[in-house]
Design a protein around this nucleic acid. Sequence first.
RNA 1: GGGCGCUUAGCUCAGUUGGUUCAGAGCACUUGGUUUACACCCAAGGGGUCGGGGGUUCGAAUCCCUCAGCGCCCACCA
Length: 874
Amino acid sequence: MGIAKIYDPLIIENKWLVKWEKEDFFKSEPNEKNPYTILIPPPNVTGILHMGHMLNNTIQDILIRKARLSGYNACWVPGTDHASIATEAKVVNKLKEMGIKKHELTRDEFLEHAWDWTNKHGGIILNQLKQIGCSCDWSRTKFTLDKDMYESVQNMFIKLYDEGYLYRDKKIVNWDPEAKTTLSNEEVIYKEKTTKLFYLKYKLESSEEFILVATTRPETIFGDTAVAINPNDKRYKNLVGKKLIVPLVNRVVPIVGDKSVDSEFGTGYLKVTPAHSEKDFEIGLRNNLDIIDIFNDDASLNDYGMHYKSLDRFSVRKKIINELDEKGLLDRAEDYTHNIALSERTSCVVEPKLSTQWFVRMKKLSKPALDLVLNGDIQFYPKKYVKTYKNWLENIRDWNISRQLYWGHRIPVFYLKEDKSKYVVCLSSSEAVKLFEEKYNIKNLNSDEIVQDEDVLDTWFSSWLWPISVFDGVRNPDNSEIKYYYPTSDLVTGPDIIFFWVARMIISGNYLRQDIPFRNVYFTGLVRDKKGRKMSKQLGNSPDPDILIKKYGADGVRVGLLFCAPAGNDLLFDDTLCNQGKNFSNKIWNAFRLIDGFKIDESQKRKSHNEFAIKWFNENLNMKVLSINESFNNFKISEALMNLYKLFWDDFCSIYLEIIKPEFGKGVSQKLKRSTLTFLEKLLTLLHPFMPFITSEIIDQIVSYKNFNIIKSNWPESIKFDSEIIENFNYSIEIVSKIRHFKKQNMLSFKDDLKIYFENDLMDNQIGIVKKLTNCDLIKKQIKGKDSETSFIVGKYGYVVDQKNKILNEIDVDKLKEELNYNLGFKNILEKKLSNENFVSNAPKEVIQKERKKLEDVKSKIEILEEGIKKQNN
RNA sequence: GGGCGCUUAGCUCAGUUGGUUCAGAGCACUUGGUUUACACCCAAGGGGUCGGGGGUUCGAAUCCCUCAGCGCCCACCA
């Protein structure tokens, strides 16, 4: 036999990677077929593949390959995301290592470095996706900063502005002092920490009395412009109209009443710093307070910080507490555990900061998006995320889209240098000059008299256009591609970006095209290690995909991942599952070896049980294809794989092949070999989405299928199956199991041939199968009374084993009795149920019918069992 | 604080509209097996009062209440 005994994925997978690349198998263009479209959730351009990506993209590849096999024009668009803050942070770090500080560079110089970085590291991840077999249309690869994508983003901004969905406002935003940019709420993470709660003395004006104010941030007293108290607080009445002196600063500030103050917290007094807390800012608005910003962009203190000017906020905190203490202005300090806001990207403490930003008005824009999901136009798998989605949309807030970064889509707004309150929104400065004339009647502006907004847009502002912009549907809404491919079919992503991305794509899709962006959303779980911990660099528990692939093959890893990935559940990844996948590859390989080695020999007598096995496997295949399709329709991908795994391993190898396998040295008929190859071909087609490499290779090696392209072949059709054939066949397998069990219990070897007498009708081909799989003869014989010295019951037909002496005594009568008791109990319950008027009158007819059938079955079973026990006792 | 979800065999999970041939799968485990595709294998087997308690019902893993444990998302208080 020329084929290797052990399947070696490495060589074969590489061979197919090259071939797929060369022959452009995955290319898609609009045609007369129905489209099936998936857009990759674009990974960070400079990122590398982790387990989450693997899972995600394997699922996408399975869906897309299945669709391709099912006759759709399958199009999977790959691409990468510029990931503005994440990438910029990496570049800043890189520059730091080189001794260059970002602020020493001009915008253009910085961008040059960023592009160098991107060109150097970009695309690695796409190559890794190829390694795991992703069948993307690589000619369509997009990058969110490509020229057309860039323009799409800016066009969207302009459209939204023109239609009144954008505004510029001063608000308290989350400020990342390290990256020196604002963050969206979604980019802020909270961590519990124990810090100190300081009680500071605020003297009443022209009095020696003081009140205590509790704060965790004593360094912000420089920005205090009031102290607030809840108007329902009893102390409030005595204090109205009085003033306090801010310690150290000696600023005189009013006491104001505000319902948002929690009287239970601290002393019930809240120092109000409108520039550095959202809540304080609102109190400030309500009470007309001054706003004093005390920080520089890096969160060091500015001129208002007096002698602490230029020092960092945290060192000021330490120093100012000492000073307050020395001056008797600190009453006490207590431990206090609360949540600290941290930047997702730089991990530094977020500083609330007042600043002017661009916002998207979300309420009206997002209104239709909720219905699209609630009424089922868009389906979520698993369903539970509909509620999460609903909850967010119902409480949606305006979206801050400005980011004080260089790397990204620059905001297309031009300001008059002289007076920045005057601005126009457009693509270029030459257009801006015209618009200034129209809008403000300012004529003959020089281009150096206007300046473009320094900020870029939030990364997600480009992401929410992804399903439209990859087909150029923002700039050209009527082009043939967008009309053909949009709406896309499925989106596969993690639930962690349901708000960042999924919801916003639905919103933008509805806004731009009055249509959904995708029909189904499949949420994958988080990949954890087998102890349930998140995978992280620090723990070192995240396996390297390249190493996994080398060890188990891409097919093996794909199968391993899918074995543990029910939709929406986190999956506990374990190497051994990949090993199971690898073993499965080997099993498939060896099944092929066996079949391939069949010699044709027409002189063999036709065996009826072979025909029966073929019939059975055909019907069984029809049945399993139906259930696999059903699993696919419900996005139960791992269920589909498990069914296939069992179909191939148990049904095809352990049963079918074991039956039709010729005895040593003998051959098979042409017809049998052809049928078997047809089954193998169908199974490989079914397996292809999960294991594209090995299935391609084997199909390629089956001689008669040389020109058969598995990628585009037809998914086996199935509408119905003959359940009688399946039942009859299964019964013989049931007998086989019982006989094997019997042999094992009686310490007989597989080779020992027994004569087994049976009383009821069995078909010849059923007998043939038992004979082939157990090496035992089944002989039909009416057994009367004492003749049946050795009887052993299985199933509803009952049969008798005659092995002269030893077996007889070891037959387990207790087992039979146990089974009898169970069935008697069952019968009791059924009879009780059926004689219960409440049941008969209340339960649906079909249920009653079913119960009656059960009763009949159980009665005949009891009869057989009783007879069997009687025979044993004789 | 607001919202969502989970608890079924040693592990990871299936169990659609309540109906005892649904208590199931894979892995792990135990036992036996190797000249004849595969030990990356074959065969057989043992495991669970479906988290606790209560209720609805003729009937509950499935519906309701409650207790206990776990997890996620959102908001964030000085």
